[in-house]
Amino acid sequence: MQRNTIIAMVIVAIVIVAISLIALQFARPVGGELKIAGSTTVLPITQECARLYMEKVCPCTRISVSGGGSGTGIQLVGDGLIDIGAASRDLKPSELDQWPDLQPVAIGKDSVAIIVHPSNPIDDLTLEQIAQIFAGDITNWSNVGGEDAPINLITREEGSGTRGIFEEKVMESFGKEIAGEALVKTSNGEVRAIVATDDNSMAYLSLGYVDGTLKAISIGGIEATIENVLSEDYPIIRTLWLITKGTPNTLAQSFIDFVLSDEGQQVVEELGYTKVE
């Protein structure tokens, strides 16, 4: 009996060790590690570029990419916990005060689209109507020409760059705050997932995330398209940043160069963003 239990223990131990070893066999040799986190707007770009980079430029690197929001990315890179922070808004003065040696590099441009469920009959709203809706002054779709149904607002968390731009370009021009009833989602993906399923919902979303599962409405007759963003007819435009602390190390520099290369910029365009000039 005792012998059996010891054998069982040994087997469990061996299995764990074996799994670890097998795992390590599959792993590629060390060539440096890069940790990137931050804006979920930039996330698809960094993810795809990381994959291409590991595939084509330097197969021996391991690049870990995660979201968290612009605030998180700046926070983490400032504290030295990651190598590159991603942000979809400009650095705030307070952040530059705290970490004066942050170095942003522009990698693309994006806009913020106002989105509703595809079945929603509304196609166009003025900037002021949008601000009133998000402030909770207008709470029913019938007040802006839609069906008689409550407007279900969705917003991003306060650290979000998308929220920062939206507040700056839309809410603050009318001196309004986002309503307390709006549900907070912590990534562009979550916002899109909810709006795609809830008929009465309304939200703002990075233009790069807009696809056929939801409808981007035009603002004062101007559609949220890349052309209108570039000509600055569409009222919301912003720059996407990769941020390093001080001068980036070789690997980080090489990755940023890759994102800025023709191949990287092609990814930026394919994903629905605008490349940098």
Binding site: A27, K35, I63, S64, S66, G67
Partner: peptide
């Protein structure tokens, strides 16, 4: 531990 999206295996215990 990390974002859960890591597309690689950790080599050392200090990897995400």
């Amino acid at each position: 531990a990390g974002s859960g999206l890591e597309a690689f295996l950790p080599i050392s215990i200090f990897d995400a």
